[in-house]
Design a protein around this nucleic acid. Structure first.
Lengths: 283, 283
DNA sequence: AATGACGTTCCACTATATGGAATAAACGTG
DNA sequence: CACGTTTATTCCATATAGTGGAACGTCATT
């Protein structure tokens, strides 16, 4: 049993007996066979900075040309991958379609939506909804004042859990053993001078957050941006996430964030109550 | 060679010698093996109206329990699928992450963006960017006045090509043989009383559109909504799409749309020029 | 025109997905 | 509350489907 990090998979066991016994398991998930290799390709294309052509892919993936070619062909046939006019690869449009459904079909998002809107009305600042996915927070929704900044710039994006309000709030909803297991795998990159430095600092911070029911991001991810956040969770904690009110520090003082804490906490509590009702044990 | 419909796959041939010789090929893509089965599962979950539990999936997919279970397990491990608290399946968050990248990394969208904004400034109405994907239009971007309507409600969504402005514009950029091949596969559902009834009507309409360089949707998809659209394309027509200005007919008269036609055509021409420069043969 | 790099196809081989059956867990019901 | 029934999960021999080396096109480069 490799790691006890994932507890949202209790229903379906995912670790199968490791056939390739001494194989290097870098980071990527318990053997998912052909599918795993396929999404590995997608991942490379998704993560890539510069345009990736066949040769570039080959270099990163390390598969022989014949094999890679077929994998890529299949992905293209399925619409998950595209060839740009300049023969570089891009993610396929089918992923957009899937995501549109994933988003609109997401029960958490649906339930949280009105509460986010209310919170935005009350504060006038940007409100986020995010859920924890392993070591990252994925933003599911966003309500903001000026539409100038595009919604898509955030939705679906992932940020580290240890330096965001939503991330720390989400972690605070997990049992400490679980947090410790995850923390051990975190690469604590120092984004700003306020970024938490290590697992110990995170653990201490989380204790405070649990006590208060509120998490602050004090410019820990991006200089000049801070936020108040509160945790939300499903009845069995298989999902944990959070909501936050984010603002630029030059305009909104820390004191103001603290003043909003009650509203944020209340909104989160309301969401949790709704979740309990609509997704609870006896839903 | 089964069908001449897909010409955006010339670079990578996707039809492999059919091992299962007399197999029924309903509609889904030329044998993509394990991957194909996996996305078939995703598709079922995505398309599903009611919540799908294991049993429901099994019924639709028609795979034996053991097999389906492993496929589902793998999808879950990869984050492409999730189990909701009520043990129904939903699309995974990883799809959101991929989509965020697919969107921000899309060259077409990137190039078109400023032109869409300009067109919106000029008209004050909602502007769309969509690309043709087989028989459907997938919306890549949207600029609208009131932010009340959520962006996500459209982005990534697919609409039929035969009853939307963008769709008809896109088709008009394809060679007639190609259009005919696709038209033969279209199910001409009568969304409104103005919806084109069959392939012949579509063909005639497309001739007009080609001549004018402008397509109208005269409440053909949704009653009370009409639009002006113009085609855009890549140098080799491997991608075709369109941009449109959409408005409710009660507020904006047809005459006004016709008045905007020149602007729409000009914007599309500008996008095409940009594409030629930045994605052209000698990019 | 010749060279070389890159991409694609082919086919014997074997790793991997398959599905039937057996097991376990959840569910409803008398 | 125990029973039968439905639904989900595990296991394993088998065969299918993915693999990768090598041979073949194809395009750019000198």
């Amino acid at each position: 049993m490799p790691s006890a990090g994932e507890d949202m998979d209790t229903w379906i066991e995912q670790d199968r007996t490791d056939r390739t016994s001494g194989a290097k398991r870098t980071r990527t998930s318990p053997d998912t066979g052909t599918l795993g290799k396929a999404v590995a390709v997608l991942d490379v294309v998704a993560q890539a900075e510069r345009p990736m052509r066949f040769r570039d892919l080959r270099e990163v993936i390390g598969q022989p040309p014949g094999t890679l070619h077929r994998q890529v062909s299949n992905l293209i046939s399925e619409g998950l991958l595209q060839v740009n006019p300049d023969q570089s690869y891009g993610l396929g449009l089918r992923l957009l379609q899937f995501a549109a459904r994933a988003w609109s079909g997401n029960r958490f998002r649906e339930i949280a939506e009105p509460h986010l809107a209310a919170l935005h009305d009350k504060t006038g600042e940007t409100v986020h909804l995010g859920v924890l996915s392993d070591l990252e927070v994925i933003y599911l929704d966003k309500v903001e004042s000026r539409q100038a900044v595009r919604m898509h710039s955030q939705i679906g994006n992932a940020s580290p859990c240890y330096c965001t309000g939503v991330g720390k709030a989400a972690l605070s909803a997990l049992p400490t053993e679980d947090v410790e297991a995850r923390a051990a795998r975190i690469d604590f990159h120092r984004h700003t001078e306020h970024t938490l430095a290590d697992a110990a600092a995170l653990g201490a911070e989380l204790a405070d957050i649990r006590a208060a029911g509120i998490a602050y991001d004090r410019e820990e991810h991006e200089t000049g941006i801070h936020c108040v956040a509160a945790p939300i969770w499903s009845h069995d904690r298989s999902f944990v996430g959070g909501i936050s009110v984010t603002a630029p520090s030059y305009r909104i003082a820390m004191a103001q964030l603290e003043h909003w804490a009650d509203d944020v906490r209340a909104a989160a509590a309301a969401i949790n109550a709704d979740i309990e009702i609509r997704l609870g044990p006896r839903a």
